[in-house]
Design a binder for these strands. Sequence first.
DNA 1: AACAGGACTTGGAGGGACAACA
DNA 2: TGTTGTCCCTCCAAGTCCTGTT
Length: 892
Amino acid sequence: MAVETSDKPNLPHDFDDDDDGPVIYKRYSSSKKNQLHSEVRKSSSHSHAGQSYRQISDAPSLNGQTFSMQKGSTVPSPKPSPVKPSVAISKASKSLVNTSSTKLPVANSKAPSLGDKQKMSVDVKVEPKYIERCAKNFVEDSEDDEDNKPLSFRLKNSNHDNKATPVVVKKSSEDSDDDVPLAKKLYRNPNLGTTSSNRDDSDQKKPISKIQKERQNGAGLSNKKDRPSPLPAKRPLDNSDSLHASVKKPKVSDPVASIKTKPVSVKHELKVEDDDDDIPISQRIKKSAMSGDKSSATKKLLTKVTKVNKSGSKPFKKQIKKTVKKSGSGSEYSKSTKLLPSSGDGQKKWTTLVHNGVIFPPPYQPHGVKMLYKGRPVDLTPELEEVATMYAVMRDTEYMQKDRFKENFWNDWRKLLGRNHVIQNLKDCDFTPIYDWYQSEKEKKKQMTTEEKKALKEEKMKLEEKYMWAIVDGVKEKVGNFRVEPPGLFRGRGEHPKMGKLKRRIRPGDITINIGKDAPIPECPIPGESWKEIRNDNTVTWLAYWSDPINPKLFKYVFLAASSSLKGQSDKEKYEKARMLKNYIGNIRSAYTKDFTSKDITKQQIAVATYLIDKLALRAGNEKDDDEADTVGCCTLKVENVTREPPNKLKFNFLGKDSIKYENTVEVELPVYNAILKFQKDKKPGDDLFDQLDTSKLNAHLKELMPGLTAKVFRTFNASITLDVMLNKETKDGEVGEKIVVYQHANKQVAIICNHQRSVSKSHTAQMSKLTEKIDELQAVLKELKTDLDRARKGKPPSKSSDGKRKKNLGPEMLEKKISQTNAKIEKMQRDMKTKEDLKTVALGTSKINYLDPRITVAWCKRHEVPIEKIFNKSLLAKFCWAMDVDPDFRF
DNA sequence: AACAGGACTTGGAGGGACAACA
DNA sequence: TGTTGTCCCTCCAAGTCCTGTT
């Protein structure tokens, strides 16, 4: 489907020519159908059509604010420009995809430049020359070793204490299981980075076409699949026979070379970065086909990095020696061949930008319900009542158990009350009347009829419609968060020192608007007030921002929605960077392994930190201020967070992002163990484990190993490669349902690696006991059936049922059948229970949204005829529209 | 080099809508 | 038809990392 054309690309206010349906879906909707197994889809997707867009409304809405979301429409845009296509599609892929690729709905993932909006929506044709170019750029790779698997994943094969015990976190949880960290569910092996590269040159010298053909026949995949993955003791540091050994390896600092060729060695220690032994065969083949992909994202990446290096990153050794002290912490329809600006670098992100600003929560509506002070009703001004109500409605939350919360609230509220107010302390305040009022409002809302709810929803929608969309370079895009945050009490996570503080109301005077020069300035929705500032900065993607009232150093931004091409583009770049790491990981691992014993303490710390980030998918760990919750990441680990368990185990125990507990005991290589011992020596429990290190030093080092590499790339890499490997290893022929189970299993492993946790649902225990009860009932039935079977075999009538009634006289065969049915039922329920228990603390969504390259999923769906809707919901489909036309052979 | 500021991604909780079940 | 459980979406907090200034 091509982008629709428009007569009015830049509508100041009313770009809601509603009838077309939501923009994002429109982009690829028509083709989506063909694209992914339309036959299967029929059965698959449950009523998207009938599914109304949800509306969320705040119960009695303290501030009167309600939310809604709805469909909108595409801004018809001018003619689509022909996309310079760029696909090297194998025959196999063509047969699978191309049925639809004449009308590719989304960006061709192999387009030479990323993410042009047009590309996301325009017909794509394959340009043969481009294929050639791709083939040239990327020499076929050889070999697959295990380097490209996440460390943690590799460990699987080993004899680990693989207690798949669920975890728990924050919330005090009832059962002991809960105390087992997510991370523990994965077995980890100390043999990290010790995979040998058993080169398999078989593919190296074959022409791409041949390889592709073989792949069609499953050669590439099965080859890999069938081969066991040994975990030999050491991974060679060098593979001088690499295919690329003869290829000139430009330095990163050579921009031209960097761009023109595959990214290669940056440092001599990494001699053959571009050796491919860490890439599975299939992957390597893919590489050539995927070069379009890479050529765009990677180029940008390289350009970016080159700049960095040029501008002065000295060799890391020099850099770190000195530092000992820890630091504190286009035109509408630009012709589509043009390379889109990438994120960062102060580059242009858009050419024209039109939007309507933001919507404010409605002013506070006083309810007049009086709270009590020392048992007596108190008159409050609307302003004071508003704040009192914020507090009253939090009665049922855990915050009410926290003194810090109450104290902070009181301090802020007292300022508003003034010295001479009758209310002199919080202890004597009784907010019950307000709480009760709130509950009854909530109840009223619940009791509303469907019609009433619908009407309310529509009303809200009307109000919000115009804020929901922006026009970016002539394309209508959804705005992510156009609602200004309402006032409230700050709900920091963990032991946040500022919890309970009053988050004041944001006014137009707080808000800076960013908009295209020629676009009309959004009308300020509050009469008599005006915006703080209007900017026309096209190097950023935000539409508006204001200072966070809780921490004025921070900003709150209004961005485009995840489905926008701007976001899609950077998403794609992120995954391309992670894929690039695959080519470097072998050498990176060799390099840090070497440094485990370095005499240079900084070097040694960097090596161990990188190892932990790689192996355990830890976050980088920036320094934090005192007015933030006390959480840590890798660089900020304290001595007390790591306990040594001889001979070579480390026990990690700390609070990570969002104060989520990370608890994991893991075997490490002996040199790492010894290094940790050294880092802990003569330090107090609260001292920094890595005292020579911070994230900027670590990232500076990583950048020397691979262009653009930072700590977080390891998380993306490890997550995506895990999914890719597991899917390809475990998917068997069979029912769609079974394949989905495989996917979920892989997804779960990723969630465990990333320590994505959720609190156990309130009803979990009840649900479990219900299931247990049912199983018990079935067991009783089974027992009875067995008795009856015995009797029937002896020619006796069945026993009487528990209520004394006489049962039907069934023959042994019938009874046997019943027994096996009951057994099956019991087994299924037990399985369900296990899954439920297993996943009660694991959140699968986060990794799907942020860490798993959607192309892995889409390609897998295509290969295995699984409807993509079974894996991605509507939002994810929209967010990942750029990945939808991926080649079925795509491997991460 | 250190620091501050700025921009963007990642993350879990909460609660509504809807499907499944009794 | 009412209840329960799951899924989905929004909200906004909390990270990461880059850039500019001193």
